[in-house]
Amino acid sequence: QTVQFNGLEYHFPNPEEAEKFAKKVAKELGGEVRVKDGRWQID
């Protein structure tokens, strides 16, 4: 599972970890999490 933001990609072994990370980062950055092409993106 991949999380993308600021032009970087973070890879996680399972979707739960990816989701948790994506939501944490979005909260800290005040961004929005969305899934695109099977990847988590933070904008």
Rank of each mutant, 00 (worst) to 15 (best):
Q41M: 14
G7V: 01
P15T: 09
V25E: 03
V3S: 00
E19I: 06
N14C: 08
K23G: 05
D43Q: 12
Q1I: 11
K27C: 15
N14R: 05
F5A: 05
K20F: 09
V33Q: 02
L29H: 12
P15K: 11
G31Q: 08
Q4S: 13
P13H: 10
I42H: 03
N6H: 11
E28R: 07
L8W: 12
V35M: 14
I42G: 02
Q4K: 09
H11A: 06
R34I: 14
A18V: 01
E32C: 15
K23L: 12
D37M: 03
E16Y: 11
E16P: 03
E17S: 08
V25Q: 06
Q41W: 15
T2W: 13
K20E: 12
G30L: 05
A26R: 03
I42L: 05
G30P: 03
E19H: 07
V33S: 04
K24I: 07
R34G: 07
V35W: 15
I42R: 00
K36E: 14
F12K: 00
F12E: 00
F12Y: 02
K24M: 12
K27W: 10
E9H: 08
V3N: 00
A22E: 01
E32Q: 11
E17D: 11
N6P: 00
L8T: 11
E28V: 08
K24C: 15
F5D: 01
N14V: 04
V33G: 02
T2K: 06
A18L: 02
R39E: 07
R39I: 15
Y10M: 07
N6F: 08
R34F: 15
K20Q: 12
H11P: 04
Q41V: 15
Q41T: 15
K27G: 08
P15Q: 10
E28I: 09
E32F: 13
F5G: 01
K20T: 11
Q41E: 13
A22L: 05
K36L: 11
K36C: 14
E32P: 04
E16H: 09
Y10P: 00
A18T: 00
P13A: 11
L29W: 12
L8N: 11
N6R: 09
G30V: 03
E16Q: 10
W40I: 06
V35H: 12
A22R: 03
R39C: 13
F12A: 01
F12G: 00
G7A: 04
D43P: 03
T2N: 04
K23S: 08
P13M: 09
R34N: 11
E9W: 10
E32M: 08
L8F: 12
P13E: 12
G7S: 05
R34T: 14
P13D: 13
V33K: 01
F12C: 10
N14S: 14
D37P: 02
E19A: 07
E28K: 09
Q4L: 15
H11D: 05
L8P: 00
E9L: 14
G31I: 12
I42N: 02
F21R: 00
F12V: 00
R39T: 12
Q1G: 11
G38M: 02
E19T: 03
P15S: 12
A26L: 06
K20R: 13
K20L: 12
T2I: 15
G38Q: 03
T2F: 09
G38W: 01
E17V: 06
H11V: 10
L29R: 05
F12R: 00
K24G: 08
L29D: 05
G31Y: 13
H11F: 13
L8S: 08
R34S: 14
G30H: 07
Q4G: 06
E9I: 15
A18E: 00
L29E: 05
V25A: 06
F5V: 14
Q4T: 13
F5I: 13
G31N: 03
K20M: 11
Q41Y: 15
L29M: 10
E16I: 10
P15Y: 13
K20G: 06
F12P: 00
E17W: 05
K24F: 09
Q1C: 15
E28N: 06
R39K: 15
G31F: 13
Y10K: 04
V3Q: 01
F5L: 11
W40M: 02
Y10S: 01
E16V: 10
L8V: 13
K24E: 12
E16A: 11
D43L: 15
E17Q: 08
F21V: 01
R34Y: 15
L29N: 09
Q1M: 12
E9A: 07
Q1L: 12
E32Y: 13
A26S: 06
D43K: 09
E19Q: 06
G30R: 06
G7Q: 05
E32V: 14
D37Q: 04
E19D: 04
F21P: 01
P15G: 08
A18Q: 00
I42Q: 02
V25N: 03
E17N: 03
V35Y: 15
L8K: 14
N6D: 09
E32L: 09
W40C: 06
P15R: 12
V3P: 00
V3E: 00
E28M: 09
D37L: 03
A22I: 05
A22G: 01
E16S: 09
L8E: 10
K24Q: 12
H11W: 13
A18I: 01
A18Y: 02
Y10T: 03
Q4H: 13
R34W: 14
Q41S: 10
Q41C: 14
Q1D: 10
F21C: 14
I42P: 02
N6M: 12
N14H: 06
A22F: 04
P13Q: 11
R39A: 11
K20W: 10
I42K: 02
Q4P: 02
I42W: 04
E16N: 07
D37F: 03
D43W: 15
F12N: 00
G38T: 03
Q1N: 14
P13F: 08
G38E: 03
G7F: 04
A18P: 00
Q4F: 15
F21Y: 07
V35Q: 09
G38K: 02
T2Y: 11
T2H: 05
Q4Y: 15
T2A: 06
R34C: 12
E19K: 06
V25M: 12
G30C: 05
A18K: 01
F12L: 03
A26D: 02
V33F: 07
K27A: 13
E19S: 05
V33I: 12
F21M: 01
F12Q: 00
F5W: 12
E16R: 08
E19G: 04
R34M: 11
P15N: 08
N14L: 05
Q1A: 13
G30T: 04
G30E: 05
V35T: 05
K24Y: 09
A22K: 02
W40P: 04
K24L: 11
N6K: 08
R39F: 12
K20P: 01
G30D: 06
A26V: 06
P15A: 13
F21I: 02
E9R: 07
G31H: 07
E32I: 14
R39Y: 14
G7M: 04
F12I: 01
P13L: 11
L29T: 14
E19L: 09
P13S: 13
E32T: 15
V33W: 07
E16T: 11
G30I: 03
P15D: 07
F5S: 02
A22V: 07
K27N: 10
A22Y: 03
V35I: 13
Q41A: 06
G38L: 01
R34A: 10
K23V: 10
R34V: 15
H11E: 07
E16L: 10
Q1T: 14
A18M: 02
E16M: 11
V35S: 06
Q4M: 14
E9K: 07
P13Y: 07
E32K: 10
K36A: 09
E9Q: 08
E9M: 13
R39V: 15
K27F: 11
L8D: 07
W40L: 07
L29Q: 07
K24H: 11
K24S: 09
P15C: 13
H11R: 09
V33P: 07
E28W: 12
A22T: 03
G31K: 07
K20V: 09
Q41L: 13
Q4W: 14
G7E: 05
R34Q: 10
G7Y: 04
V3L: 05
Q1P: 09
D43N: 11
D43I: 15
E9V: 14
G38V: 01
V25F: 05
R39N: 09
K36S: 11
E28S: 07
E9S: 10
Q4A: 14
H11N: 08
E16G: 08
R39M: 14
K20I: 11
Y10R: 03
G31L: 15
Q41R: 06
E28L: 11
D37A: 04
P13T: 13
V33T: 06
K24W: 12
G30F: 05
A22N: 01
V25Y: 06
F12D: 00
A26Y: 04
E28H: 08
K36G: 05
G38I: 01
N6Q: 09
K23H: 13
G30S: 06
Q41F: 15
I42F: 05
G30A: 05
E9P: 02
K23P: 00
G7I: 02
R39Q: 10
H11S: 08
F12W: 02
V3R: 00
E32A: 11
H11M: 07
K23F: 12
A26T: 05
V3C: 07
Q4D: 08
A22H: 01
T2E: 03
E16D: 10
